[in-house]
Nucleic acid binder design. Structure first.
Lengths: 186, 186
DNA sequence: CACGTTAGTTATCGACTGATAACCTGTCAA
DNA sequence: TTGACAGGTTATCAGTCGATAACTAACGTG
């Protein structure tokens, strides 16, 4: 078994992907740099070497999640530049909720100013991108993000998505309101 | 300085209040049982003695937040049993976002099944209470909670509430859509 | 006033975790 | 060949944190 040697850039990209997976499950404080390292198949000190601190690794993961969501929306807008089109794209993201849950953990950790500032910038950019792509009014965009946040929370709660728990009366009731909106729900 | 001696019940109630304050700032993994203990003016081992584990303390705090929010809604419904009435009540809660942020951290920590189950039960109960109190349809209740989740996330992000950061163009734009809905925003 | 019960503390431990330092090794150009 | 740089590891530490054990002190009651 020869250890595959990658460039620092490639390794960083791989580690950021691993960080998104790990942090989206247990959040900032609940995730170990060693867990991220093992996911990528490298040693824990090397993770620190490449990102300096756990915090910078976390911020890189938040940034990556924001970038991927923005890219998804831009791609969707090329076919259907309406809120409905972006909503469908968001529904597809929720089938693999890593990215959106990562963002939620960014919100949750925003109490620390060093994390809050980049997280707000990331969310603000997403808001502006949606308005720019769809031409929606502020109120329309607000309702769009409102539903998005609800779905994101439901995903984190395991009411929704691949790791969803058996439905309860209330959750079936609530999810039923999204009929015709979910395309690729597992 | 004579240490005030309380009954276990009173001390538990006091500790739960302290736990809500502490956990709502740093989340489950990011908060120390010692921080909760200091907030209540007791020793850390005594917190563990009263709640057995950190996890049970956290769950008690989540439960308490859910109960308080439910009580607030029931009280509001006596005056105005409409979604608008409950929405105003929620707006008042956001002025002191401890309770709602506590709940958000419950969602974030729901990846652990031992936490997820009670958290889902808590949220499900709130959903049913809203529908029962207002007679709203599932879709109306969904939109109500959607906006609530957005506001909760914005509070956690310090876009909203007492610890809010200076507004950005996008946040002013977004918050502007709530004009006429915010009564007691600080 | 003795005495059991309840409230609370101090001391301490074992496990964990982020970070540092020192070292190793494959690759490539001269 | 050699040597230097970039990728990566092992060893290790200092601090932290949840939890346990043993002890102390106040209260109420017969």
């Amino acid at each position: 078994m020869t250890r595959t040697r990658l460039t620092a850039e490639e390794r960083q990209a791989q580690l950021i992907a691993a960080a998104v997976t790990a942090f989206s499950q247990s959040g900032y404080a609940g995730t170990t740099t060693d867990q991220v390292a093992r996911l990528a198949g490298v040693s824990q000190p090397y993770v620190i070497r490449l990102f300096r601190t756990k915090q910078e690794l976390f911020l890189a993961a938040v940034q990556h999640a924001g970038d991927r969501i923005e890219a998804k929306w831009r791609e969707a807008a090329e076919r259907d530049p309406s809120l409905g089109g972006l909503g469908d794209a968001y529904g597809e993201l929720l089938a693999q909720p890593e990215l959106v849950t990562m963002l939620l953990h960014g919100f949750a950790a925003a109490g620390d100013p060093a994390i809050g500032d980049p997280v707000r910038a990331c969310f603000g950019r997403l808001y502006e991108v949606v308005r720019e792509l769809t031409g929606a009014t502020a109120t329309e965009a607000r309702d769009f993000f409102a539903v998005g946040m609800l779905l994101t929370c439901l995903g984190a709660m395991r009411v929704l998505g691949p790791d969803a728990v058996p439905p309860q009366p209330w959750s079936a009731d609530l999810l039923g309101t999204f009929e015709g909106l979910d395309k690729k729900m597992s």
